[in-house]
Design a protein around this nucleic acid. Structure first.
Length: 157
DNA sequence: GCCAACGTTGGC
DNA sequence: GCCAACGTTGGC
């Protein structure tokens, strides 16, 4: 059963991995490893190829949505959870039933002007956006169709 | 560097 | 099941 394209937002620290890094990556694609939060993992498991992703730079100056990527494939186990020396090693994860998944993300485009967190906060249409909720730390979030369309309009203003 | 908010862990 | 302690996120 197919479904229409869904929309997401994913955060990355540009000093660790920026949208420029994604644009330069082989096949303009990267695997989104290292997520160790159940809610974020569950959102990745819900992703389908072709779903669209707002690429957000956190811990940046300014923090901002900087462009678009797309989901390149369904979620699959993140191998770093089993690598003992890896920062994201999880000794409690059972290889027979891996706890953590990741998806592949492909570059689509970079906005001519990043849409800063500050400017997003001034938009009444976006007050319900997960990103803007107090204390929101989730690194993978759903974006509604309305939010997506509104943000893309902002991107081309 | 600070710190508020949040998620996870583990003792009980 | 409660909750204190701890670790992390991420804006500022």
């Amino acid at each position: 059963m197919s479904r229409s394209r869904q929309y997401w937002l994913m955060k990355s620290e540009p000093l660790v991995f920026s949208i420029e890094d994604l644009a330069r990556a082989p096949k303009r694609t990267t695997c989104w490893d290292g997520v160790r939060n159940y809610q974020a993992r569950n959102f990745m498991r819900a992703m389908k190829p072709g779903d669209q992703v707002l690429f957000y730079h956190s811990n940046a100056n300014p923090p901002a949505i900087v462009g678009i990527a797309e989901v390149a494939g369904a979620a699959y186990p993140d191998p770093t959870q089993f690598e003992r020396s890896h920062k994201h090693f999880d000794p409690a994860s059972d290889p027979a039933a891996p706890r953590w998944d990741m998806v592949d993300i492909r570059y689509v485009r970079t906005f001519a002007t990043p849409i800063s967190l500050d400017s997003l906060r001034t938009e009444k249409a976006l007050v319900g956006m997960a990103l803007l909720q107090k204390g929101s730390r989730l690194s993978v979030q759903p974006v509604t169709n309305g939010e997506w369309e509104y943000i893309l309009k902002l991107a081309t203003v």
